[in-house]
Design a protein around this nucleic acid. Structure first.
Lengths: 186, 186
DNA sequence: CACGAAACGGATAGCGGATCCGGATGTGTG
DNA sequence: CACACATCCGGATCCGCTATCCGTTTCGTG
C-alpha cells in the first residue's frame, strides 16, 4: 500500500491519542465524542476506524504485542511453574490496568486481522507454557489449553465488579489470582 | 397501594413472560422488542418498567429469592465446608443458567429496592457461612466477605467468555469453581 | 502551477431508549 | 343502571449514538 498522506497520518494519531485518553479515564468509546475531542469530523473518524470495535482493538494492540513478547520470553524460563504463573499474572494485570484489553480479550470474534494474529501468538505461547508446567507435574491434569484465557478474563472481571475505583484494583487482582493459582497447582 | 387494575395486571404478566423468554433465549432485553412481542404499546411497557434494568431485575427476582432461601438453609448445615462450597456452587450455577441474574449480580447499584433487599440477605448468609467455615479452619484466612460475590461473578463470566453455546456451560462452570474452591480451602 | 487522487467534514439515514398526551377502559358511587 | 373519575393504553415523537454518503478541500506529483 502507498503510505498514508501527511494529514491523514496526523489525524490517525490524534484519534488514537484521544481514544487512549478516553479508555484510560474509563469512559466508553463513542466515535462522535472522539471526533469532537479530536477536532475532526465524524466522517474522518469513521474512515480510519469503521466501527467502535476497530478503534478499540487498535488502542489495545500495543498491549497485545507486549503480552505476545512476554509469552515468547516465558518459554526461556527454566522453571516451568514460575513461567506459568508469571504468564498468567501478566495476562491479568494487563487486563485490569487497561479496560480496552479486557474487552478485546473477552470478545471471541475480532474485527482486525492483526488482533487475531496477536491473540493466536499469545494462545500459542500459553499452550506451550502450560504443557511444560503440566509435564513437570506442577499443574492439575484437567486444565485445558483453552481454559487459560477465559479464566484470566474471569479474574479481571471479578476485580472490576463492585470495584470502588481503579486505585486498589491491582492488589485485589493479585489476591484473586494467587488464590486461583493455588487451586491450579498439582 | 390500591391493587392493580385487572388489565394492568394482565399486561404486567404478559410483559414479564415475554421478558423471561427473551432472557432464556439469550437475546438482550430491548423494551421496544418486548412491547411488540407482547402485543402492547411501548408506553405500556415503560409505565410498568421505567428502564431496561428495572425489567431485568424483576425477571431475576425469583432466582434471587431462591438463592436467599438456600442461604438461610445453608446455615443449618452441620458441615461448615460443605455449606460453604454448596453455597458458592448455587451462586455460580444460578448465574450460568440465567443471564439476567448474572447481570444483576454484577451490577453494584440496583434500580429496585427489592433487589437491594434480596442481595443483602444473600450477602448476610454468605458472610455467616464464610465465617463458620473460617472458624472451622476450612478456608484461607485472607478471604474477605466482600470477595465472595465478585469471585462467583468472575467464574460465571469465565464460563460465558468464548463459550460455544449454553449446552456445556454448566460442566465448565463446575470445573472452574472446583479449581477455585481448591485454592480457597485452607 | 495544474491536475488527479486521497482525505475531509458535516448533513443525514437508521435504530433503540425514553417521554408525553389524547383517547379508551375499568371501578366505585348515587 | 348510569355516570364520573382515576387509571391505564398506545403510538407519535424526541433524543443520542452509530454509520453512511457525497460535495468540497487538501496534498503531492509531473
Amino acid at each position: 500500500m502507498t503510505p498514508l498522506r501527511k494529514d491523514a497520518a496526523r489525524n490517525w494519531d490524534r484519534i488514537l491519542t484521544v481514544a487512549r485518553e478516553l479508555v484510560d479515564e474509563g469512559t466508553p468509546l463513542q466515535l462522535n465524542d472522539v471526533a469532537r475531542r479530536a477536532g475532526l469530523g465524524v466522517g474522518t473518524v469513521y474512515r480510519h476506524f469503521p466501527t467502535t470495535e476497530a478503534l478499540l482493538e487498535t488502542v489495545a494492540t500495543p498491549c497485545l504485542e507486549a503480552l505476545a513478547d512476554h509469552g515468547r520470553k516465558a518459554l526461556e524460563d527454566p522453571d516451568p511453574w514460575h513461567a506459568f504463573s508469571e504468564f498468567l499474572t501478566r495476562l491479568v494485570e494487563a487486563q485490569v490496568s487497561d479496560p480496552s484489553l479486557a474487552k478485546v480479550a473477552a470478545t471471541a470474534t475480532d474485527t482486525l486481522p492483526r488482533t487475531t494474529e496477536l491473540k493466536q501468538q499469545i494462545m500459542t505461547a500459553g499452550t506451550e507454557v502450560l504443557t511444560r508446567a503440566r509435564a513437570a507435574g506442577a499443574v492439575r491434569e484437567d486444565l485445558a489449553d483453552g481454559d487459560l484465557v477465559p479464566l484470566m478474563c474471569g479474574v479481571a472481571y471479578a476485580t472490576y465488579v463492585h470495584s470502588d475505583g481503579p486505585a486498589d484494583r491491582l492488589p485485589t487482582a493479585r489476591r484473586y489470582l494467587d488464590t486461583l493459582l493455588r487451586g491450579l497447582s498439582a
